[in-house]
């Protein structure tokens, strides 16, 4: 086995070059010049302009960017729509048709519910997917504006903790605490901004109630509120249902935020530890997670929508 490998190494130029490249990159990773800076991790989206409005955050800027990308891609696919589709039109049609079939398979084939739910869930999917993936582009987290560093104490402490992962911990931590200029990234994946995930969670849960009331009328709320003197057990269950409904907001928002934010932190840390090669593996993982999270958000929303339109009284 070893002999065979050695033979391949000596004889096959391609394998030899690849191996030399790998070794060179690994060596470069420990050369101080190529070391990534210690990861600067900020839980909240930061205001881009130091003295500008607080609401103009990198998360908001990237949200607008995501919107533009989605709309441009849509326009590009639909502007010259043909019976015989081109490559891009084909991909977009595949996406829309796939989501449409998925919606129908859960909400009922050809049902009015499918048509009502479809724009909500497919927009969630597309928006979350593009948001997740845009954070993986080079330049996210690395291009930014230096602020004078009058960060809050909590932020410095967080930086301190995360910088522990590195070797030059003490110096970096000290520098951060002393108010050294801090890089505020120009872009931030919207999925790593709680405002976006919370907004989507609120929309999802609110629309669940909306569709429920639309389908069942005032009867929908009997799921949560029952007369405790008639049906004591039912009242307790209804109370739990209410809590579950509210906790959906939190689970929706923090699931997406946590996955994407953590993914970005993992990428940063990996780039900090071994500059080359190692992050590539995690990039693959993040691509997978980005897709799965978009799908999960969409499918859960769809499932809740569908469940809300079904009357629970009929079961008894």
């Amino acid at each position: 086995m070893f002999k065979k490998l050695l033979q391949a190494f000596v004889l096959n130029a391609r394998i030899r070059n690849a191996a030399i490249g790998v070794i060179a990159l690994l060596v470069l990773s420990v050369v101080p010049f190529f070391n990534a800076p210690p990861p600067h991790v900020e839980l909240a989206a930061e205001a881009l302009l130091e003295h500008g409005p607080k609401w103009f955050t990198n998360g908001l800027l990237t949200t607008i960017l995501v919107d533009l990308i989605i709309i441009l891609l849509a326009v590009f696919a639909v502007s010259r729509m043909k019976e015989i589709p081109g490559a891009w039109q084909n991909i977009v049609e595949m996406l829309v048709e796939g989501m449409w079939n998925l919606t129908q398979s859960i909400a009922g084939h050809g049902s009015a519910n499918s048509r009502k739910f479809f724009p909500w869930v497919i927009t969630i999917f597309i928006f979350v997917l593009v948001s997740n993936y845009i954070g993986l582009l080079p330049g996210f987290g690395s291009i930014g504006i230096y602020h004078s560093g009058a960060e809050s104490h909590a932020q410095a402490a967080l930086d301190n903790q995360l910088a522990m992962a590195g070797a030059e911990t003490v110096a970096v931590a000290a520098a951060a605490e002393e108010g050294k200029p801090v890089l505020v990234p120009l872009f931030r994946s919207p999925s790593a901004d709680l405002n976006m995930t919370l907004a989507l969670a609120l929309i999802s849960v609110f629309m669940t109630q909306f569709f429920g009331v639309q389908a069942l009328g005032i009867r929908y709320f009997t799921k949560f509120f029952k007369n405790p003197f008639n049906d004591g057990m039912g009242a307790v269950v209804g109370f739990f249902e209410l809590i579950a409904e509210i906790s959906k907001i939190i689970s929706f928002s923090f699931r997406l935020f946590g996955n994407i934010f953590a993914g970005e932190v993992v990428l940063l840390v990996m780039a900090f530890l071994v500059t080359f090669l190692l992050p590539s593996i995690f990039y693959g993982l993040e691509l997978f997670i980005g897709f799965i999270q978009a799908l999960v958000f969409m499918l859960l929303t769809l499932a809740f929508f569908t469940m809300a339109t079904v009357s629970h009284d009929d079961h008894h």
């Binding site: 930061e46 976006m196 919370l198 907004a199």
Partner: peptide
């Protein structure tokens, strides 16, 4: 956590428009 009602509202409106 960086949550502010203005940003939250902007995201909701953004999603609706999109």
């Amino acid at each position: 956590l960086g949550i502010s009602w203005q940003l939250l509202l902007s995201q909701i409106v953004n999603f609706g428009l999109l």
